[in-house]
Design a protein around this nucleic acid. Structure first.
Length: 358
DNA sequence: AAGTCGGGGTT
DNA sequence: AACCCAGACTT
């Protein structure tokens, strides 16, 4: 409790010296606070500010907004993105104008039921307009709490969010919780930034867990959703009359770094989807990963390698799953450094590949 | 729990 | 190019 008071007091002191002068901080009008909060969802203050001014100018109160037609609202929102916010804004205004007789509900639990108002926004309106003691938890708060208190729960998971909420409840002061809420968000926005936070002159320099352990970049923990990319590896397999092949050493930080594969042209889309060769053993084994395979049927003597004519094939693998899965099953194709060094140069094609393709 | 919605700044 | 921004909603 004492520590928690120290935390909030330091934060508020910092806030009073460093807060930006923003229009929605000059009022307790729930309409204006609501408007600002909707506009600022996933939106930087700098970007949202002119829109806030526009809306306040066009609609003095929630009833005026409610009686506007949706196209007018959307036109004012134009360029701000996340347009469902605008539609929900309008829907919410109508609801308040009718069901609530032009008055905003005065507590967070009622507010959260309105369209476009979720966990964060309900807390923000209740706090800033009605002085309810409820912590706001946005991206800034997650970051500040994670770093100062070394809370490494995953903010992408429900259980992790719950832990942050518990901590937030412990920290929020009885006295002026609204100012504290403003303070912690402002601190995250201006000082404890996602990248390159100003730790050198930070008020929590001595007690910040992240700074003391040099974990600023690691916190907050947010598991990234592994999105499957479609990568199309279009291989060109050169083979000589002596059944030799050309391999290419993969460099960089990409998949299979340091291993050898065929001369490669990667594209982000199909080159051709026809002549699927599904009979060979290799193709069937690779089938789960392959969307199309094409081998040119005409042998062309187009390349010389060490004075040996080579035959020209194109061999396409269109890989849709995580490419590393392929490596586990098919290390026949991708040689490591040691294997390559043991082989004559150019590297002989594997027996397996011979049977399959040639 | 994962996907979607977006323009824009930062690194 | 990846990440994030005073998130909410749908599936």
């Amino acid at each position: 409790m004492d520590n928690n008071n120290a935390f909030s007091e330091k934060l508020v002191t910092w806030y009073e010296e460093n807060a930006r002068d923003l229009p929605w901080r000059q009022t307790t009008d729930p309409y204006r606070i609501w408007l600002s909060e909707i506009i600022l969802q996933q939106t930087r203050v700098i970007q949202g500010l002119p829109y806030y001014e526009k809306f306040v100018e066009n609609f003095e109160n929630v009833s005026e907004l409610a009686s506007a037609d949706e196209q007018t609202v959307l036109r004012l929102w134009q360029g701000l993105g996340y347009y469902s916010r605008a539609r929900n804004l309008h829907k919410c205004a109508k609801e308040i104008d009718k069901k609530f007789e032009k008055n905003f509900p005065k507590d967070s639990k009622s507010l959260i039921k309105l369209p476009g108002i979720g966990k964060y926004t309900s807390a923000a309106i209740a706090s800033f307009a009605f002085k309810e003691k409820v912590p706001v938890i946005d991206g800034n708060v997650y970051r500040v709490l994670a770093r100062v208190f070394g809370l490494d729960a995953d903010i992408a998971s429900g259980s992790g969010q719950k832990k942050f909420e518990e901590l937030a409840w412990e920290l929020i002061p009885d006295k002026n919780p609204d100012t504290y809420n403003q303070a912690i968000m402002e601190f995250g926005a201006l000082h404890c930034t996602p990248k390159s936070p100003a730790c050198e002159n930070c008020i929590f320099r001595l007690e910040c867990s992240a700074f003391q352990n040099d974990r600023q970049d690691a916190l907050p923990v947010k598991t990234k959703k592994v999105k499957v990319k479609k990568r199309y590896f279009n291989y060109i397999v050169f083979i000589t009359d002596e059944r030799e092949m050309i391999l290419n050493k993969r460099e960089g930080a990409d998949i299979w770094a340091g291993l050898y594969d065929y001369p490669l042209m990667e594209t982000s889309d199909f080159l051709v989807l026809e002549d699927l060769i599904s009979k060979s053993e290799m193709v069937s084994k690779l089938q789960p990963y392959i969307m199309s395979v094409e081998v040119s049927k005409d042998y062309k003597h187009v390349l010389t390698h060490r004075h040996i004519y080579a035959r020209f094939f194109t061999f396409k693998l269109n890989i849709t799953t995580e490419v590393k899965d392929l490596l586990l099953d098919e290390n026949l194709i991708f040689y490591n450094e040691e294997e390559v060094n043991d082989l004559p140069k150019p590297v002989l094609v594997s027996r397996y590949l011979n049977d399959a393709i040639f």
